Amino acid sequence: MTEPLPVAVPRKGRPLEAVLERLADVGGTDRLEELADSVSNTLRYEKAVTKGSLEAERGPYHRLADYSDPSDPNNPEFTLLRDDRDGKPRRIVFDSATVSIDGVDLMLVGREEPFRALRTHEFALGFDSADLVLEEVVGIRPTGLGRLADINERIDPMDTDVRVVTGLGDTVYHTLMGRPSELPAGTDLDREFLTEYEGPICISPRYERLVTAVLGTDVLADVEFVYPDPDAPEEATIADTGLGVYLTVSGSTARDHGLVLGEHLFPSETVVMRNAAEDHPALESALRLFDGIGSDSKITV
């Protein structure tokens, strides 16, 4: 009997929820729906406990024992990690679960950085945020990029064997935004506007390489990156700066700060990835489960 295909997934957050929801949609079984709901609800509760917005009645080890039952292979397992918040509190996160979809057995294994786990050849298949791929390996060029389908062409094959297969469609966008006073009448807030712009753009420091790759060095020739006040909402600092790039869903908070939304520069989306140098008897069948599901155009691997 073939061992399940190990699949690297995030330990927590929106990307993990996107993976579980997609597996439930593809598999169409009550068990997969229950798995997605139970893991997501557990981790949302644990996040609230870690952030201090909820107080748990029992300690983390008791809660961990309640969540994980290794004697039942149908149950997900969780584990404890130290969170990076002040005080380094213990945080309960996803560890593993085995699922079967259309005869394909997958062992979902939680990793802090699934993309890096694929880079080191621990896995042949995994899921992670497209952001991390851009931050880690996408080459910086004079011209920018704006689609998931552009990523693989920017990856140096000497640097990694990992390629993006498709997106899961859980899309929020890195969006250009600014004060109306920064825009001449009749001007759109887009990449073309930035080619003539000289001055500061407010971005999160962790996204400096991502924004550089997305916009390209030509556009940024006369631009200075500035960073938000850590004690203030990012939209407030962008409003003070005049222009910025920030993740948006609806854009309502940006508008509350007097900002107008411009071009969606790049989708921040959970992506399916494969390491082209690794194989498994179930790999191609697993990839077919996700064929064509993304919101972007088909990606060449």
Rank of each mutant, 00 (worst) to 15 (best):
E235V: 06
E224T: 04
G199A: 02
L35D: 11
H62D: 15
I101K: 02
R90H: 04
L183V: 07
Y67V: 05
M1K: 13
R154S: 03
S250I: 00
R288P: 07
L287M: 12
V19R: 14
T253D: 15
V211D: 01
E33Q: 09
Y197Q: 11
L64A: 03
M1C: 12
P184S: 11
L261V: 05
I101G: 01
N74T: 13
V172W: 14
H264K: 10
L81H: 11
D296Y: 10
A149W: 09
G178D: 12
V226G: 03
A48N: 07
N74W: 11
R179F: 00
K47D: 15
S68G: 10
A282T: 06
G262R: 00
S53A: 05
G294T: 07
R255S: 01
G59E: 14
G242N: 06
R206Q: 14
Y61H: 09
A232F: 13
T187Y: 04
P73N: 14
D218G: 05
Y45T: 08
E135G: 04
V49Q: 05
V49F: 04
P6K: 13
E198C: 06
V9W: 09
R206D: 15
T79P: 04
D102R: 12
L108D: 05
T171L: 14
T217S: 09
D95Q: 11
G103P: 00
L168Y: 00
E198K: 09
P15H: 12
R58G: 08
D222K: 06
E135L: 04
S40E: 06
L243S: 06
L125S: 09
D279M: 05
E192L: 10
L194K: 11
P228I: 11
I293N: 09
V104K: 01
K12C: 07
V9P: 09
E278Y: 08
S268I: 03
L80C: 14
G139W: 07
E34A: 07
S53T: 07
